[in-house]
Every structure is written in structure tokens, then in C-alpha cells.
């Protein structure tokens, strides 16, 4: 028997091992034979005789193969590992497909820290002030970013630009939360042209309007949903500039 034949016979029982594991076994056994060979050659043995002596000393290749295979059996570690790899791959694919969601997270971040751009619908602006007032609404946060007083269709209105985001940085904001916010000024709030609003899973931005009396210094926003209420007082800017 040659060295190669010996190793092949051992490996033939190791069908259940991965290719990498089989290669490791082959290498390890070959190295052992190498070491034994070297020792015999140093003692003056003939190469062919040394090799057959080595392989004889190793034992029955079929038995070695069987015993080795037994050590790798059972408990399904291999399959759990493979399932984990499959899950990871599927998750990565799903993440790539849904990469658009990161834009939502970006929206949420912008709205939380920077100043979102919300266009003004006023024809004429009398006074405007950049503000930063926040209020908890449910599991989200309402942030008023700008208050303006001006004119639309010959009516004096106060425009309040605001946005909402979820308390958690990658969270989902409530849908259409403006439906649950009312402006206490003079009766009902007034919707003028609806105005452009941006709504994503991460942040919502919109404007609300009120008809303030000339002597009103502030406007009160009230949130009411599922029995929970909260109020925020928004000061109106003085004429001619910022508050």
C-alpha cells in the first residue's frame, strides 16, 4: 500500500465531513507519517521499507476512518450553523432591498436635530420667528420649528410649521398625527390649501393655521388622542421680525 492509498482509504469513510475538515484530517495524518518516516530514515531504513513499516504502525485505515467519522456525528451542530448562515444571507438581502428605509431614519435624524425646511403658504409675511419647542405626543415628539404671522387671501393668519418624529432614533412615527392636534386660537383651526406636507415612516412635517385676534400673544396647540392630552403654548412673533 502506498501513502496515498492509505490516506484515500481513511478519507473514504469521511463523507459526512466538510471538504475543509477532510483536508485537515488528510494533512494531519500525512504529517504524522512524514515524521515517522524521517525518524526511520535517520536510523538508516530503506525508503520503501520505511513507508510500509509506517503505514503498518498506523493501523487499519478503514478502522481509523470509521472511528474518525464517529467523532463528527450527532447533535446537528453543522446544520444549525448552516441555518444561521442562511438566515444571515437572507437578512442581508432584505436589508439591501429595503435600503430605502434608511432615508426614513435620515428624515427622523434631520427633524430631530437640524432644521427641516417647511415651505410657507403665506402670501405676505408680517413677522416670523424660528423656534424650537418640543412636546411629547404619545410615543412620539412634536417639534414646532417656525411661527409666522401673515396674510393669506386677505385674512390675517398665524402659520405654525411643525414636525413629528418617534422618540427612538430608528422608530416609526405615528401616521397623520396632525389629525389629533388642534389649535386653540379662535375656534377651529383653518386649513389653507392643505399645504405641502412630507410624510415618511421616520418623520412628518406640516403646517397648521390659526386666526389670532390682534391682541393675542400666543397660540395653544393641544394634542388629544386615546384619552391622553398635552398642550403647548406657542408665542407669536412680534411685528417686524423675530421674537
Amino acid at each position: 500500500m502506498t501513502r496515498q492509498e492509505f490516506l484515500d482509504q481513511v478519507l473514504s469513510s469521511l463523507g459526512r465531513l466538510t471538504a475543509e475538515e477532510r483536508e485537515n484530517v488528510r494533512r494531519e495524518l500525512e504529517e504524522h507519517v512524514e515524521d515517522r518516516m524521517e525518524a526511520l530514515l535517520e536510523m538508516g531504513w530503506d525508503e520503501e521499507l520505511a513507508e510500509s513499516r509506517c503505514l503498518e504502525a498506523m493501523g487499519d485505515p478503514a478502522e481509523i476512518g470509521r472511528e474518525l467519522a464517529r467523532q463528527y456525528r450527532g447533535r446537528g451542530w453543522l446544520w444549525i450553523g448552516r441555518a444561521a448562515v442562511l438566515l444571515t444571507v437572507v437578512l442581508c438581502v432584505q436589508a439591501l432591498l429595503g435600503i430605502g428605509v434608511l432615508f426614513n431614519a435620515w428624515d427622523g435624524l434631520v427633524v430631530r436635530t437640524l432644521r427641516p425646511q417647511i415651505t410657507s403658504m403665506l402670501d405676505e409675511v408680517e413677522a416670523e420667528a424660528q423656534v424650537d419647542l418640543r412636546m411629547d405626543i404619545g410615543s412620539d415628539v412634536l417639534r414646532v420649528v417656525r411661527v409666522s404671522v401673515g396674510e393669506v387671501e386677505n385674512q390675517r393668519v398665524a402659520e405654525i410649521a411643525m414636525c413629528a418624529y418617534d422618540r427612538w432614533p430608528f422608530g416609526i412615527v405615528a401616521h397623520n398625527c396632525e389629525n389629533w392636534i388642534t389649535v386653540e386660537g379662535l375656534g377651529d383651526d383653518v386649513r389653507i390649501h392643505g399645504g405641502p406636507a412630507s410624510r415618511t415612516y421616520g418623520a412628518e412635517c406640516w403646517q397648521m393655521y390659526a386666526l389670532p385676534a390682534p391682541e393675542d400673544r400666543s397660540v395653544v396647540l393641544t394634542y388629544s388622542r386615546y384619552g391622553e392630552t398635552a398642550s403647548l403654548e406657542v408665542p407669536l412673533p412680534e411685528q417686524g421680525g423675530t421674537v
Binding site: V10, H32, A57, G59, D60, I64, L68, R70
Partner: peptide, 15 residues
């Protein structure tokens, strides 16, 4: 002992 029989033991201990 037969030298080859050590390796199944070692691999078993490893696993």
C-alpha cells in the same frame, strides 16, 4: 498502540 488510532480520540476530544 496503533498510531493512527490516537487521532480519532483527539478529534473526538476537540469536537
Amino acid at each position: 498502540m496503533k498510531e493512527g488510532t490516537l487521532y480519532p480520540v483527539l478529534h473526538g476530544l476537540e469536537q
